[in-house]
Design a protein around this nucleic acid. Structure first.
Lengths: 201, 201
DNA sequence: GTGTAAAATGACCCTAAGGTCACATTTGGG
DNA sequence: CCCAAATGTGACCTTAGGGTCATTTTACAC
């Protein structure tokens, strides 16, 4: 967590630093990011950086936290009404919400992409705090479908949730820059694929 | 390309270096790899390393070349008989061949995984030499299906080939460590997914 | 205005790791 | 056996970049 000093900063200055960091991590990913660049872009001294943050990871996790929070703000309303929809409908709602998030904040999205695809070690660390948020999300989706009697018999929910997670974490990312129509086609087919894999008939 | 000196080496020594490098890149990926470790593991002096290779990338590309060659040796026989099978059959054959490769040489597979997932810059460089081998592969698959009259109307083959490529590059990797039965289920469903997406009815 | 605590600063430090080089050793032809 | 060319060697160079610290500046209480 950033030091108190960071939160004492004038909002504009704090936003400048957060903005520079956001751009840096979105553009270069965690591995390629460079504190000197962040410091130069936000017009602060290198020493000041370490008045605000423990280290580079501290800042990075702060942004990842913000990203997760922002993404959950989009996804939670969807998850909270899982029981009012079919499994297939819920899958589609999840995808649409995900793209809404990505479209609304491409930099946050880019940080999430780098985080999920290139920082497996951090994910493990992070999950200790968020208790497997992502997998649990799809588990909730499956359990809800189970209560509606939609699921096939003999399904290992944990494994299936992971499978869905993998699919949803990787495939839509590649389509992010595609046009809306193509996206929609792919979403519909992915929804169908997953639905056929887990629901009866 | 490695220097002539490397190819003049006694086969055992050359193999020791190649083996150490293979293990290093497979374990740490390109970004985390360390020449000092490679040098220590293969019992040569640091200076000798640079008698054999221009630089770290030279060695890495040498291994990636070998990896691609080995993978193509498995995939080409499949591609050469595309016209004797349905699209769905060919998709399944491609997956099975891919897993056969991964199972037979997990280290080579790991290098490929890192290359595809974490080295987009290198892929671009590499493709200049291999003329989009991967995308072309799926394009051939689609074109063959087209000649058999299996494809839906109005399909953009280039885009579709890319979509299939993305799916086949990311999803199976995640399943690599899963047991055989689960793998087979997933392969069948993926084949079905892609088939329904591109073939008539 | 003065003193004290917080914050700002940038030159500097330190380590990791890729890459070099002057020298030593081996090899092979005459 | 001798010499030259090729090869082997590891101490050393260099750079990048994360992180530190002594010093200065600012903010604020009295």
């Amino acid at each position: 967590m950033p030091k108190q000093t960071f939160f004492n900063l004038a909002p504009g200055k704090r936003a400048a630093i957060a903005g520079a960091a956001l751009a840096e991590f979105a553009h270069y990913g965690y591995d390629g990011s460079n504190i000197n660049r962040i410091v130069a872009a936000s017009r602060i001294a290198k020493g000041s950086f370490y008045q605000y943050f423990e280290d580079k990871k501290d800042l990075y996790f702060h942004l990842v936290d913000a990203m997760v929070e922002k993404k959950l703000a989009v996804l939670n309303p969807v998850a909270d009404t899982f029981d009012q929809h079919t499994f297939a409908q819920n899958m589609e709602r999840v995808f649409l919400a995900g793209y809404a998030f990505a479209d609304s904040d491409p930099q946050m999205y880019a940080i999430g992409e780098d985080f999920v695809k290139k920082q497996p070690a951090f994910i493990a660390q992070f999950m200790e705090r968020y208790s497997h948020e992502a997998q649990d999300f799809y588990l909730r989706l499956l359990e809800c479908a189970g209560q509606r009697g939609e699921l096939r018999e003999g399904l290992d929910l944990q494994v299936t949730a992971h499978f869905i997670y993998v699919l949803c974490a990787h495939v839509p990312m590649e389509l992010f820059r595609a046009d809306r129509e193509f996206r929609d086609i792919c979403i519909r087919q992915l929804v169908g694929f997953v639905s056929r894999a887990v629901t009866k008939a």
